[in-house]
Design a protein around this nucleic acid. Sequence first.
DNA 1: TATCGCCCCGACTCCACGTC
DNA 2: GACGTGGAGTCGGGGCGATA
Length: 282
Amino acid sequence: MPIYEAIYRYEDMDEPILVSNIEQHEHFTNVKKNLFCTYNGCPSKLSYVPRGKVRAHFKTWPKANHTKDCIDFFERMEKANKQKNVATSTMMLSDKHIKSVLDNLKKRRKEQEAGTPPKTNINKKPRPKVKPNALENPSLTIVPTTGAGADLTSGQNNIKEPPVRNRSIINLTDDDIGTTRSIEGYIQNVLLEENRVVIDIQENSDIFKVYFEQFFFNNAPVNFSGLFVTLKSLVDKNKRLLFSGVGLIETRNEEYVMLINKNNDFYVEYKYFTVFIHSASI
DNA sequence: TATCGCCCCGACTCCACGTC
DNA sequence: GACGTGGAGTCGGGGCGATA
């Protein structure tokens, strides 16, 4: 069963931690390295698994088994064989798909602010059974991209567009490098250069850089850079503006960053950038 | 070891509504 | 009427622990 409570143990100090508030902890980076089972006498170390394919939870550290009387004790088992990955291709995401990703961010934030409980589907269909002696199922991994040089275009070969995972700034990992993710955060600073803009966005106490570079401006409408000047002036006036974007995750100066390639790949205050700047200028 | 069942996210579809 | 947008609901994929 997933674990939602843990003990943060550091320098003879024990602090209870809930999965719902760990990311708000002022020492989050250190906390997630020093998590232990809450059951009295159980020394099992835990790791934090951020929300991704499944909701956020704590899981038992590899080979750090729980004591047999612990409520979280389980016998370890080998994992089933996964699908065999025979090839990897990149697919250019359509504007429609990117808009859907951005709109889902908006929808989720509204649900969180309203305190809406997660949905459960009581009429869900059972998972189809695998036939005995079925042949191995080779799979093609499709990596979503917004940049140039994609192997596939949206809808090509009737292949569904690949999922764009949402990541919080503090939970990016090396697995995210080279693929497309969605990110949200409040704009802290706008750096304007020749054919280059860098936006600092903040989530809790963490800062994350979003880059708009030559490729972006080559494909953007004429004088698009002027919109960033307006954005900077709004941010400099302490306007609290929410940025949400879909872009390529890279590392620069040993930090994770996002590269935005198209002008429709990001929102400010849940509006397309041009729409937001136009409404803010009225 | 192979598969099941639960759970959740993201893609997709449909429909209502507003604007031009 | 055409088009764009927003919201609700459905469907499918896949991670993970449980189980035969």
